[in-house]
Design a binder for these strands. Structure first.
Lengths: 200, 200
DNA sequence: CATCCAACATGACAATTGTCATATGAAAAG
DNA sequence: CTTTTCATATGACAATTGTCATGTTGGATG
């Protein structure tokens, strides 16, 4: 099977590529260090499978997966990520990926996962518990926009200007966010949202 | 040369171990997933070299390196880390490590770095620029204690209680921190300190 | 078609953060 | 030995955050 590896960490990308190339039935035909390059290579080289990190420059792995789904592209995506965040997982499933592995899994599992996906199956890391499905993002679109800017260190006044709202509105959104996440303050809220993959 | 790999990310640890074992002159004799296990294995197996991540559970790679230096242990440490933070680099140099590589380096460089260190040399990632040496942590011990707790989402009152200070004192420390880091607010300050490796 | 609900929006007031002036003690420098 | 400097420490006041009551609009439900 023809495989492309999309991973911005050079050393891991090189190591995975070298090891997978040692397998008889795996052919690593391309490597990408960011999401845009990954999408381009998939279009050009038509791999069977793509191993895709999530957090990459220019375009996240989830953005690429969503794009491939839009295009009805046959390439099967196996997400390989560091963080077991429910927000990522849900978004990946919606994007129709065929695998979701954690970098905390043994290297042996990767090859097995690729074969499974190539044969039409799905490969999900066993570490992802059932409760994982339940932690849906409780924030509205507007609240997410506000929280993203809070996380960037912007004040309520700054955010009000950017989103064409009044400062009181922004403060109310922040207050709603604190209540929904059961956070003590905005630093706490940022931390909770990051852990759950609710901050893009 | 006998090598131990200390890396909490299972997949990378497995991949590096497999690849390094393919080299004629490298013998991977142990693997550790956290700092304490790494220290224990180094004591027991007496490797020539240890490839050490920084951010690991229980004990950071830098804590381990410092411990080995205290003991005058002959094992040579090569730091392998994701983040090029000057705080980490300085602390590593002070701990007497023999190598400092970024996971953004190609896998080929790792083997070459190990040989260089084994022969008594040092191996530093070329990406680490000269300015890297200059970004010394501007915060006092007390300010660092305060910022660590701010980053954990504690209020000035909470921090005052923990450190046996008054709330006004804590707020003044926070204000000093904001000025030194040229941060707009505490979220901004946390972000700057994290980027520079000044938050432990 | 009417009612209800949720998302979005605002400002008054309470609580917390951040600034600033000030003080003390220990270590470094002259 | 004296002076200076820096880290540590505190509270008054200004600025911002967070809470709460309230309003509007559009979509869902009966």
């Amino acid at each position: 099977m023809k495989v492309i590896i999309a991973e911005d960490q050079v050393m891991l990308r090189g190591a995975l590529s070298a090891l997978l190339d040692l397998e008889d039935d795996v052919d690593v035909i391309g490597q990408a260090g960011d999401g845009e390059e990954a999408l381009k290579l998939i279009m050009q080289l038509e791999p069977d499978l793509c191993i895709m990190d999530i957090e990459m420059p220019k375009m996240t792995g989830l953005d690429v997966a969503e794009r491939l789904k839009e295009l009805g592209h046959p390439c099967r995506v196996v997400i390989l990520t560091t963080f077991s965040r429910s927000g990522y997982f849900q978004r990946a499933m919606k994007a129709g990926v065929h695998g979701f592995l954690l970098k905390d899994s043994p290297i042996d599992e990767l090859g097995a996962a690729l074969r499974k996906v190539h044969q039409g199956g799905r490969a999900i890391s066993p570490e992802l518990s059932l409760t994982f499905w339940e932690a849906e993002n409780p924030l509205t679109e507007r609240e997410q926009e506000v929280l993203k800017r809070v996380a960037q260190g912007l004040s309520a006044n700054d955010i009000a200007k950017e989103l064409f709202l009044s400062s009181g509105t922004v403060r109310n959104y922040v207050s709603d966010i604190l209540q929904k996440l059961e956070a003590k303050n905005r630093i706490d809220a940022i931390s909770i949202a990051e852990k759950n993959g609710w901050l893009k």
